[in-house]
Amino acid sequence: MSPTPHATGAAPGAGQAHCHHGEILQGLFLDAQGRPREGLVTLPMYGLGTRARFLPRPGTPREALSVSPPGRTKALRAAALVLAECCTGAVCGGELHLDGDIPVGLGMGSSTSDVLASIRAVADAHGLHLTQQTVAALAVRAERACDPLMLDGRPVLFAQRDGHVLETLGPALPPAIVVGCTLGGGRPIDTLALPRRTYQEGDVGAYARLRNLLRLAITHQDTALLGYVSTHSARLGQQHLPHPEFPTLLRIAWHSGAVGVQIAHSGNVAGLLFDPAARALPHRLHGCRSALAQAGIPATRTLHLPPTPQEPAWTRTSPKRSAAPTSYASTTASSASASKP
């Protein structure tokens, strides 16, 4: 880790992070050295997120940390890691305050959002500029696996347990409109209680094919191919976290003219993907929402790909230079040459 200090001492610091809407693709992939790695491609989402504020308490030891609301242990662990690993010179303990509107336990990256906002707030308080690699490494240590929310950029295949990019897939996802919904009655899922995924012989080949197809979908901005990839990834994901509503989602997608479905691989959030250029699109979207309601599956919000941020994923709120993420290239440079299985 190589943080760059921009100020000494500590002052109140702030940070924030957005969330995602589950995965487009998740599975087992080969890295640049041909080793199997778990990886994922998330469906980006703005408008919901976590805001963190860190209030240093001079005269207290570094270990004297508290978090509000209580129980946000991953965020507290992340704050402690920043102080221990990145802050030099005189440091102190402090209070971490979190505020957010991300539904917890639906597979939308709420814990990673908490962790990233906390890392940024503590870094901001100490005038530190942390690279994306450093933030990713801290996030993995804080929660064992993290989503690529710190990148705020192009679609990537991200090794969530290693904290690095396996491949940059292209400049942007194909255009799509996603009708979001929740499965399982919207009940939260404790991801830490889920057994770790196990894979069968031949899974690497199946996921390599989907990886290749997603790369093509992005290159050619092919919405139908994006839907094909996300649907098949969701189908494979049913082996690990089955959803009784999955066949119903497939039927609704077929009858409403959607190009596919996507489901969070560790939660109950899902979506049906539509081509924005499709004929009679308003009719299709209305029919989709009506069918979801009739099936007892609550529709939530409609998303657009590529997403248009409603607000910056990171806003500087202090007068000194903040711990904003570095340029996207700093994270992807080492992975640009990742082998393509």
Score class of each variant (00 low, 15 high):
Ala333Thr: 13
Thr332Asp: 05
Thr4Tyr: 12
Ala136Asn: 09
Asp114Tyr: 04
Gly59Pro: 07
Gln200Ala: 08
Thr198Gln: 03
Tyr207Leu: 00
Thr50Phe: 02
His243Thr: 11
Ala64Thr: 13
Leu40His: 06
Ala224Glu: 12
Cys92Gln: 10
Ser230Arg: 01
Ala217Gly: 10
Leu225Phe: 03
Val269Trp: 11
Pro3Gly: 05
Gly153Met: 03
Phe274Asn: 05
Gly227Thr: 07
Gly267Glu: 02
Leu151Asn: 06
Ser68Ala: 13
Asp31Thr: 03
Gly271Ala: 01
Tyr46Leu: 12
His220Phe: 13
Arg154Trp: 05
Thr302Val: 11
Glu167Ser: 15
Gly296His: 05
Ala224Arg: 10
Ala329Asp: 15
Leu40Arg: 06
Gly27Tyr: 00
Pro3Trp: 06
Val91Phe: 13
Gly49Glu: 02
Ser337Ala: 13
Pro171Gln: 11
Thr248Tyr: 09
His20Cys: 00
His255Trp: 14
Leu236Trp: 08
Leu236Asn: 08
Leu30Asp: 00
Pro174Gly: 09
Ala159Asp: 10
Leu272Pro: 13
Thr198Gly: 03
Glu95His: 10
Glu143Asp: 10
Ile263Trp: 00
Ala139Gly: 12
Arg197Glu: 12
Ala159Thr: 02
Gly34Val: 00
Gly13Leu: 02
Leu192Trp: 14
Arg51Met: 10
His304Ile: 13
Phe246Cys: 11
Ser66Cys: 11
Thr302Gln: 14
His21Lys: 12
Arg196Glu: 04
Val259Ala: 02
Pro148Cys: 01
Thr326Phe: 08
Val91Asp: 15
Tyr328Cys: 05
Gln221Thr: 05
Arg77Ala: 11
Gly105Asn: 02
Leu166Val: 00
Gly93Ile: 06
Leu194Asn: 05
Gln238Cys: 08
Leu138Glu: 13
Asp124Arg: 07
Val122Asp: 03
Glu201His: 04
His240Lys: 07
Leu43Gln: 11
Cys19Gly: 03
Pro56Phe: 04
Leu40Gln: 05
Arg279Gln: 15
Pro70Ile: 03
Val165Tyr: 00
Lys320Trp: 14
Leu138Asp: 10
Val165Leu: 00
Ala11Cys: 14
Val259Leu: 02
Gly93Cys: 07
Gln16Glu: 08
Ala208Glu: 03
Gly186Asn: 05
Leu30Met: 00
Val229Trp: 04
Val261Thr: 11
Phe158Val: 05
